[in-house]
């Protein structure tokens, strides 16, 4: 019996674990060792250079520009998306839900099922300076002065890309938060109402603390997402990464280094740095947003 069991376990695990080791575990492990070489890729010519790549990275102004943009995004994106999603969720959930709240939730979710690359192409048309939707709209409502070259101008490019992230992201978190909110027993709200709490107060004192776990997860997701940003920047920005590094982010810088310049050792070092930042920020997010867990 036991013999048969182990043979069964082994034969079920053999192929999946083997493939997982080759395509997932080994690349992750190799990343760390490649980061310590000056490998240029195509030849086998690679030398161990210790932490030279990281020293070079530390003195690389483009890396710092990219990092600054990522930091800007990872503060502003969670702030804007979480606030908007909480607002819409509270509105949709208000007094048991506004009419049509189910349809709204389905519609809001649309961008979440689209490929980021496709969303990028769509917004390219929206931002197009001459015939794009946005400038056309501004013209039509008499705000023609506000027309911009959006993606072509270093001052507006990163903000424009951020707006696309917000457009695409809110729906997912509305669904997440409304699901969490609908789990809150109704009689708690009735009790709050009897105690004289207005809608505003019952949101801050009741709803938010009770769904804090979901908010925390949302912030962590968004912070990690803001560290990536590759697809949107690659599709939308001029260059990509431009104009003049105005939209440069770490992931794109790493991609360009590896697959345009062939600096694989250096690119792997950027990947390791990104991973370290990622790890620190995830831990920090959970630490900073920690609250007493409220049971109900």
């Amino acid at each position: 019996m036991h013999h048969g069991k182990y043979r069964f376990v082994f034969s079920l695990l053999l192929v999946p674990v083997g493939l997982y080791a080759v395509f997932v575990i080994s690349p992750y492990l190799q990343a760390f060792s490649i980061a310590l070489t000056d490998w240029q890729g195509m030849t086998a010519d690679s030398h161990f250079i210790g932490f030279d790549n990281f020293v070079k990275l530390f003195h690389d102004p483009v890396f710092w520009t990219a990092l600054r943009h990522n930091v800007f995004l990872l503060v502003s994106i969670p702030l804007v998306i979480v606030s908007l999603s909480l607002f819409f969720s509270a509105m949709l959930n208000y007094q048991g839900g506004v009419p049509g709240s189910r349809i709204y939730k389905v519609v809001y979710f649309f961008p979440s099922v689209l490929s980021i690359a496709v969303v990028g192409v769509l917004w390219q048309f929206v931002f197009e300076p001459r015939n794009g939707l946005l400038n056309g709209f501004l013209q039509a409502v008499g705000l023609g002065d506000l027309k911009q070259i959006w993606l072509g101008d270093g001052k507006t490019a990163l903000g424009s890309i951020m707006a696309v992230v917000v457009w695409g992201g809110v729906g997912f978190y509305v669904v997440l938060f409304t699901a969490a909110m609908s789990a809150i027993p109704r009689d708690l709200y009735e009790a709050a109402l009897l105690d004289g709490a207005g809608p505003w107060q019952s949101f801050w004192r009741l709803t938010l603390p009770l769904i804090w776990g979901s908010v925390q997860v949302a912030i962590a997701y968004l912070v990690i997402g803001a560290l990536d940003m590759f697809a949107l920047v690659q599709v939308l920005s001029v260059g990509p990464g431009g104009p003049d590094d105005a939209t440069q982010v770490i992931s794109l810088y790493m991609y360009t280094n590896a697959f345009t310049y062939g600096n694989f050792g250096y690119a792997a070092a950027i990947g390791v740095a990104l991973f370290a930042i990622n790890l620190i920020l995830t831990l920090l997010t959970f630490r900073l947003t920690r609250r007493e867990r409220v049971e109900y």
Binding site: L13, V17, Y20, V22, F23, V24, I25, S26, P27, Y28, Q30, A31, I34, I224, L227, D228, F230, S251, M254, Y255, A258, F259, F264, A267, A268, G271, V272, L274, F275, N278, T282
Partner: peptide, 23 residues
């Protein structure tokens, strides 16, 4: 084994990109 599999979720894909290409 469980943690080896589930742990894959916390690693960003970018870390593995260069070595994955060569694999």
């Amino acid at each position: 084994l469980y943690y080896v599999f589930v742990g894959g979720m916390v690693f960003p894909g970018f870390l593995a990109l260069v070595p994955l290409f060569f694999v």
